[in-house]
């Protein structure tokens, strides 16, 4: 039930929406990964997720895990392996809230 609220809230809330789709200047590590100097959080997620798919980085035994290659590791806090469930949170770390 809680979920129903959340799902509505995000697309209706302009601030949260902006947070998701506004272009942001990237720190150098991420810039190298995506090959652009600016990207939105959503764009970054799609970029990383398609990178994982095209390079076949999902663990063959457990698809929920991703074995990072060097390039991916550089933007995932240097972790050798990540869980898909934590991917959005890890990406969010590169998009800090702007101080008011």
């Amino acid at each position: 039930m809680l979920h129903q609220h959340m799902k509505k809230a995000i697309t209706d809330n302009p601030k949260k929406l902006a947070n998701l789709i506004d272009l942001v200047n990237l720190p150098s590590t991420v810039r190298e990964f995506v090959g652009q100097s600016q990207i939105s959080r959503l764009g970054c997620f799609k970029c990383v997720w398609s990178y994982i798919k095209t390079n076949n980085l999902q663990d063959s035994n457990n698809k929920n895990l991703v074995n990072c290659d060097e390039k991916l590791k550089s933007i995932m806090l240097g972790k050798p392996q990540i869980d898909l469930a934590e991917l959005p949170a890890l990406i969010k770390m590169h998009f800090p809230k702007e101080p008011k």
């Binding site: 998701l20 934590e86 949170a89």
Partner: peptide, 17 residues
């Protein structure tokens, strides 16, 4: 839209954690 789909996925994973 990718926004709707992603925000659902993201909030679900957050909820899961």
């Amino acid at each position: 839209t990718d926004v709707a789909a992603y925000s659902t996925l993201e909030s679900t994973l957050k909820w899961l954690r």
